[in-house]
Amino acid sequence: MTPRDNAGPDGPAGRWSDLDRPPLNATALRRALLREDGLWRAVDVVQRTGSTNSDLVDRARRGEAADGTVLIAEEQTAARGRLDRRWTAPPRSGLFLSVLLEPAGVPVARWGWLPLLTGVAVATALSRTAGVDTALKWPNDLLVTVGGVERKAGGILLERAGDGAVVIGAGINVTLREDELPVPTAASLALAGAVTTDRDPLVRAVLRSLEDWYRRWLAADGDPLASGLQETYAAGCATLGRTVRAELPGDRSITGEAVAIDGDGRLVIATGEGVQEPVGAGDVVHLRPL
């Protein structure tokens, strides 16, 4: 699909009938985000695609996208989350975006912090701009509170895009109503009482926050302590202090208390046997509320 700006009532965006969900203004986004000394070099908005992550990975591997490229879709039809989970949302009901980054100079061993960094950046931006207290479920789910219950409003996915490059995707439910949620445990910013659901300032806030945190991390050569990332992630992580079950590769699981985030971004779980086991991959279930 060729990237193109959203248009007015007579253009492509006019085929949607939900007037409560206006299209993004790609021209205004570029004007606000593209600076000579900025991280973002290109901002493309498309009406509809399967997955912004897949599109941007393909473009990067073909040499058609450079460091700092942002791809945003008004609708995704084959969006993917962690563990290859699929999800869909109505057109213009959320933020569906991916960014291409080339973290030159940072050891590859520290690239695993990038999805956690993105979680911190997105949660910070949403809390400030939408007025919604946003927490992080390890490793990269975005949680909001609806009716006193924590529910998932978004997620983050990182994929390699060839040597020296990664694509990070974020999907955030903004205006989904209860009857539109894919599962009962999902939520949206609107359901969490957001002070604004205007996606233009939300996109700008997310990308500016991501630029800020990414540059801090680069300046520290990816060191999570020196950049302040490890401390900030732990402070906003709703998983820590809870009893959790981690479903691990190989049909193995462990249950215990989530006690720390280690220097590699892994979740450290203290089991009943007195063992502290770091978990770097798997599905974590919160068993006990705070």
Rank of each mutant, 00 (worst) to 15 (best):
R4M: 05
R4N: 10
N6D: 12
G11C: 12
P12H: 15
R15I: 14
R15K: 12
D20Y: 12
P22W: 09
P22C: 12
A26S: 04
L34H: 08
E36I: 01
R41Y: 05
G50C: 09
D55G: 08
L56Q: 00
V57D: 04
D67S: 07
T69V: 11
V70F: 13
I72A: 02
T77S: 13
G81N: 01
R85D: 07
R86A: 10
T88Q: 13
A89K: 03
L100K: 07
V108I: 12
A109F: 05
R110M: 09
G112P: 11
P115S: 11
T118F: 04
V120D: 06
V122M: 10
A123T: 02
A125K: 00
R128F: 03
R128Y: 08
D133F: 09
P139R: 09
N140M: 07
L142Q: 06
V144H: 00
A165V: 00
V166W: 02
L176Q: 15
R177N: 13
R177F: 12
L181R: 02
V195C: 08
T197R: 06
P201I: 13
V203Y: 13
A205L: 01
L207E: 04
R208T: 11
W213K: 01
R216D: 11
W217P: 06
L218W: 01
A226E: 15
T232Q: 08
Y233R: 02
A234Q: 14
L240K: 06
V244I: 10
R245N: 00
R245G: 01
R245C: 12
E247P: 09
L248I: 06
P249M: 07
I254T: 12
I254Q: 13
E257Y: 05
L267C: 08
T271F: 11
E277W: 10
P278N: 08
V279M: 07
R288V: 09
